[in-house]
Design a protein around this nucleic acid. Structure first.
Length: 273
DNA sequence: CACGAGACCTGTTCGC
DNA sequence: TGCGAACAGGTCTCGT
């Protein structure tokens, strides 16, 4: 499911910033249950329960596609990978298929991690920075400049699309937003990153920021049966629009495989080389 | 270093 | 209708 905008939407809901939901800030953990062992990356289940119970949720933040729930002494770090989701419910509500882990709070609410494909992982740690150590810059960070982006692009000679999705190069961009950003910037997904001019690099950073911000504004994208709530999927210009007319020039959108990921682009707007 | 393939998993959709 | 193949928002590891 989730790239930066979807993860950002999840944390805003958990903070109670969206309509209706109360959020889990200030809640104290009274119980923890692990339903699928491999979900917990560290520590082991027994230590996890012993340490997490009694702690209070102080803050919820995002770094790249990681969710960090700041507790009294530890951080609960969650990566949703392909199909993970986090939701709050009350303890009376029956669990759903694919629920993998939950935490109960003394007020009667419950935080649940659901993940059909079992790729998602949860860590309980006092050193979350270790998990974030290799991550590249946040694209929405105002201090991250087009000049810096250009020089980073020039330092590599990789195909631009897989480079954008490389979390050590840039944090938070995945398959959907890479395709959408490249289309907005009118750049072919296979362009060698080192060949981008200053002006192209600047256009690309602007494209990335625009599509991420629109994604956040629309509460993320909801495709298939996984994850609901967002509606950015209704505004995709190329992603999963193979054969449909490019909204800019009318040329049918094409689909190719790049680094084993489906890649959608307009052959007229996004010329190679 | 850059790239491709395979692994990790389950569910849906598409073609015959 | 049934059944297998292809495909899915991510990341890691290994081989060339």
């Amino acid at each position: 499911m989730p790239e930066l905008p979807e993860v950002e939407t999840v944390i805003r809901v958990l903070r109670g910033e969206t309509t209706g939901e109360r959020g889990i800030l200030g809640c104290k953990i009274s119980r923890a249950e692990l339903l699928w062992e491999k979900t917990l990356a560290m520590p082991d289940a027994a230590s996890f329960k012993a340490r997490v119970i009694g702690q209070t949720v102080d803050a919820i933040t995002r770094r790249a596609k990681f969710i960090q729930i700041h507790l009294t002494t530890h951080s609960l770090v969650i990566h949703l990978r392909m199909s993970g989701d986090l939701r709050a419910a009350d303890q009376e509500t029956p669990l759903l298929p694919h629920d993998r882990l939950y935490l109960d709070f003394s007020g009667g609410s419950r935080l649940i991690f659901n993940d059909a494909r079992k790729f998602g992982r949860v860590w309980l740690t006092t050193e979350p920075e270790q998990l974030f150590a290799g991550l590249g810059p946040e694209p929405l960070d105002a201090h991250f400049s087009a000049e810096e982006f250009h020089s980073l692009l020039a330092r590599s000679r990789r195909q631009i699309k897989p480079l954008l999705m490389d979390q050590s190069f840039l944090a938070g961009v995945g398959n959907i937003y890479a395709d959408e950003a490249l289309h907005q910037a009118r750049l072919h997904p296979l362009r060698n990153s080192a060949t981008l001019t200053r002006e192209e690099a600047s256009r690309l950073l602007q494209g990335i920021r625009d599509v991420l911000q629109e994604g956040i504004r629309r509460n993320g994208a909801s495709i298939d049966w996984v994850y609901k709530g967002g509606d950015f999927q209704n505004y995709f210009k190329v992603y999963q629009r193979t054969g449909e007319a490019c909204p800019v020039c009318g040329t049918p959108i094409e689909r190719i495989m790049v680094a084993q990921r489906g890649t959608h682009y307009c052959p007229t707007c996004q010329k190679p080389g």
